[in-house]
Design a protein around this nucleic acid. Structure first.
Lengths: 380, 380
DNA sequence: AAACTTATGTTAAATGCTTTACAAAAGGTT
DNA sequence: AACCTTTTGTAAAGCATTTAACATAAGTTT
């Protein structure tokens, strides 16, 4: 597809928060005459705005330009395992509205979807209809993009096959994108923290265990959207442990929040939630610490396998289990550096997430901006 | 980068062996006037040729065009673990010259490189210098692309850090591309057999075990070029088996040709090479069959993990160990379908390679054509 | 044979972009 | 103040490509 000049200029800002007119020439390959003219048009249309005057390089200061954050907005419904977050962000990815409530997912789609749309409508009150570019929905399960539904979700009982995308599309009459929650997290971590890293694995250890993959700079979803399913790598060392996925010996059947809780219950501990587990860990209980370390070791095995196979330069470890104790990350590092091949671990860094709890919403915003604004060349 | 019209027309043929003028319009987006004019130029320059007249659709027959196979040639040196194959292919990927000799790699780069260049020079005798587009070198070890050398190769003693690319570049004064052997195989299998498949894993079980990954339609090399290292996934079930990579419990330390040979030697069998092993298998020896099945099972574990992580639609199993008995592929299938998640295995097919022993050379030809002809826009 | 269909060629006018050349704006240096 | 540098604007000429319109080639259908 051949893009118009104005579309090319706009696209140049994808990945570059600000650009001077000269930098736009370099990125787009357009001539100064064209850039000058197109930028003026885009300023008139308020698609671009003038940002800072940059420090002089011995001559006239360059004038940094940016996409006008208020030129469009993205609606977000982020269903995590334990909460629904509804948000609205602008084109700079800044969260303008946010509302968070507990556990709508368990009530099933019949109750949760109307509630979610209602909240989103409220959150969008201040936004002109024409400026709503689209909606991103995050869900804690495998997503089938061609239908816009979740398939075989382990923790979304009653949601299997429900056309979530259609529901929002019918209500809001804008493009809707459904995406897995961990995929949104890895997008956030990549775009906002490590944009220059080509290959990155994001591992989330919470109630369940999942991962998201950035490969050659782009989110990799796999053929059925189930790529990154690191939680169900099977370890023979576990010998016979049943997993909630129906198999046995999955990493998740030992190292996940739910598995640890089951195990501790069996040992007579009073733990019901991951929060209980984290609290217990903070007390320094010897048995809990031992179990947590063992769990980290097994995750380490799975991560080492993934590192051998994918040879990334960065692995980000996140989640309430990972953050329960510093030992978790340390143990994972030990195991990976011991097990992964010398070549694959040479330039590898294993780090905690640098983002806060809004990372899912941030990732949804990024995805929405890229999908609805930068890819959809109706802005011209 | 903005390509010239003629470059765009040429690029259209990448992935399409033949195109009519109308199809070129569709693929490039260029107008009929431009296509008509550019095609005429390219025919005059003998870069394109007229291929068949297609069957009529109720009117004038369309005239299929193709890249002139004789417009350029690719030189190939393919070092496998056991042999060197020197070849020359044309732009259609057809092998015009081929010479194969045993085991130069073990003699080290000082002897092997001059020999390889000498043979390649002989193979290129009939080709005008200006038509040699470039040279592709295949090697059985991890490749560092930015230097053009192998790093930490387990089976290329004395080659570590030797700048192979530079050697050929100095001799032939053309672009040279160094690539891992299994990566070349997966390119061949993808481009020639399954071009429409987006995500594919190629597993080679021979003396060693390796794999190549096609992700979103393109070869994935990883950050250090070591992606696909499935042979050194570690299985705890193996408990303490040392591997030649320095670690222990790698799949390769049990399921590879060398590991099986070691094991059989320990049991008193007279096996020295993988060929001996294959011969022995054909006799139907119970112990050997049992060991081979066990080996297949372990490979199956590693493949299942890779399937969970990458969610491909096709896994190709190849190599002399894989082909030693039908049971090997059958066992791998059983294990993968049992262990991989329901979603990831839903549309998954596990198949043997459809190509013959020239697959490495074929892949090198494909890579060379794409790198030197379709990407290098000096043809304009 | 006449009529229709599909594939391709060609001409002329219009469009969009680049190149070239000249200018101006806005800073720093001496 | 005089002179340099960097950044941006703009007008004129040229080039490549598209659009539109007409034409031709080569087949099928009736």
């Amino acid at each position: 597809m051949v893009l118009s000049s104005s579309a090319r200029v706009i696209s140049a800002f994808n990945g570059h928060p600000t650009l001077t007119r000269q930098e736009i020439q370099d990125v787009t390959g357009l001539s100064r005459v064209t850039v000058s003219q197109v930028v003026q048009e885009l300023l008139d249309e308020k698609i671009l705005i003038e940002a800072d005057l940059l420090p002089s390089n011995g001559g006239r200061k360059a004038n940094a330009l940016a996409v006008n954050p208020k030129h469009g907005f993205v609606g977000i419904c982020y269903f995590s395992a334990t909460a629904l977050t509804v948000a609205v962000t602008d084109l700079a990815g800044e969260i303008k509205e946010k509302r968070r409530d507990m556990n709508l997912i368990e009530e099933g789609p019949k109750k949760a979807l109307p509630k979610a749309t209602e909240w989103l409508q409220e959150a969008l009150k201040g936004i002109p209809k024409s400026k709503l570019l689209g909606i991103v929905i995050g869900v804690p399960g495998p997503v089938e993009h061609k239908t816009g539904s979740v398939i075989n979700p382990p923790i979304m009982r009653g949601w299997d096959g429900v056309n979530i995308q259609e529901h929002f599309k019918n209500t809001f009459k804008v493009p809707v994108f459904l995406e897995n929650d961990v995929n949104l997290m890895v997008i956030a971590e990549h775009r906002l923290v490590y944009p220059e890293i080509e290959n990155l694995i994001f591992v989330k250890m919470s109630t369940g265990i999942g991962s998201g993959l950035i490969i050659d700079g782009r989110l990799y979803r796999g053929s059925q959207g189930s790529a990154g399913d690191i939680g169900h790598v099977q370890l023979d060392a576990l010998k016979g442990l049943p997993c909630r996925c129906g198999h046995h010996d999955c990493v998740e059947s030992f190292s996940s929040g739910w598995a640890l809780i089951e195990k501790l219950k069996g040992l007579g501990y009073d733990v019901k939630t991951v929060s209980d587990l984290v609290t217990l860990t903070r007390t320094g209980d010897v048995e809990v610490t031992r179990l947590l370390n063992e769990a980290a070791g097994y995750i380490g095995h799975a991560v080492a396998d993934a590192v051998n196979l994918l040879n990334p330069t960065k692995v980000v470890i996140q989640g309430r289990i990972a953050e329960a104790s510093d030992r978790v990350l340390a143990t994972i590092k030990e195991v990976v550096y011991q097990r992964a091949s010398a070549l694959a671990s040479k330039n590898l860094e294993i780090v905690p997430s640098k983002l806060d709890e809004d990372r899912g919403v941030n990732g949804a915003a990024q995805l929405g901006i890229e999908e609805f604004f930068f890819s959809n060349r109706s802005n011209a």
